[in-house]
């Protein structure tokens, strides 16, 4: 059981990283979008392993169901998807390696050298607890986030509509 669980865990890790690599390196946007779906799904699975049941559910609902759909719409609306433009290339790829290596090395050393203090608590359902936190300690942030969401929605609509009429 332990072994199986571990095996599945590693499978999800590989899925997440691998699909992320596809997202980044695939020359076709639409492929990247679908690869992102798997990445997000993998992350949601990792959340489960981290005992964040509600968050995993939210990840699937919001990201996969909402944001990813939105991105796909964006792809359809902007790039001529139907023409399957393969000229959609990356640029400054070798240049970009420098900061990646620098930051990566820094992060790796941070992760490996920091003496982490680990305290693992028992796995429990988190939904009720999160709900209480959001409506008590994080009430202001929660309300601010909801206002942000609302204004972002209205703003996005306004931005999209404005130029359309002007055209």
């Amino acid at each position: 059981m332990q072994l199986l669980s571990e095996l599945i865990f590693w499978c999800f890790v590989v899925l997440t990283v691998g699909s992320a690599i596809v997202v980044v390196f695939h020359s076709r946007v639409i492929y990247s979008v679908f690869a992102l779906l798997f990445t997000l799904f993998g992350v949601a699975a990792l959340y489960v392993y981290l005992a964040a049941d509600f968050l995993a559910a939210s990840q699937l609902l919001i990201y996969v169901g909402g944001i990813l759909t939105l991105i796909i719409f964006g792809v359809f609306l902007t790039s001529k998807v139907m023409s399957l433009n393969i000229a959609e290339q990356s640029h400054q790829r070798w240049l970009a390696v420098i900061p990646i290596v620098l930051v990566g090395a820094g992060l790796l050393m941070l992760i490996l050298t920091t003496p982490w203090e680990i305290k693992i608590s028992a796995v429990r359902p988190t939904t009720q607890e999160l709900g209480q936190l959001l409506l008590t300690d994080y009430l202001v942030s929660f309300e601010a986030a909801s206002i942000l969401l609302l204004s972002a929605l209205i703003g996005a609509m306004r931005l999209a509509r404005f130029f359309r009429t002007e055209d």
Binding site: P99, L102, V103, G106
Partner: peptide, 15 residues
């Protein structure tokens, strides 16, 4: 890119 180069350098310096 510029930003990241320097952030990377700072992290390295710190570490």
């Amino acid at each position: 890119w510029y930003t990241l180069v320097f952030i990377g350098l700072f992290i390295l310096m710190k570490v």
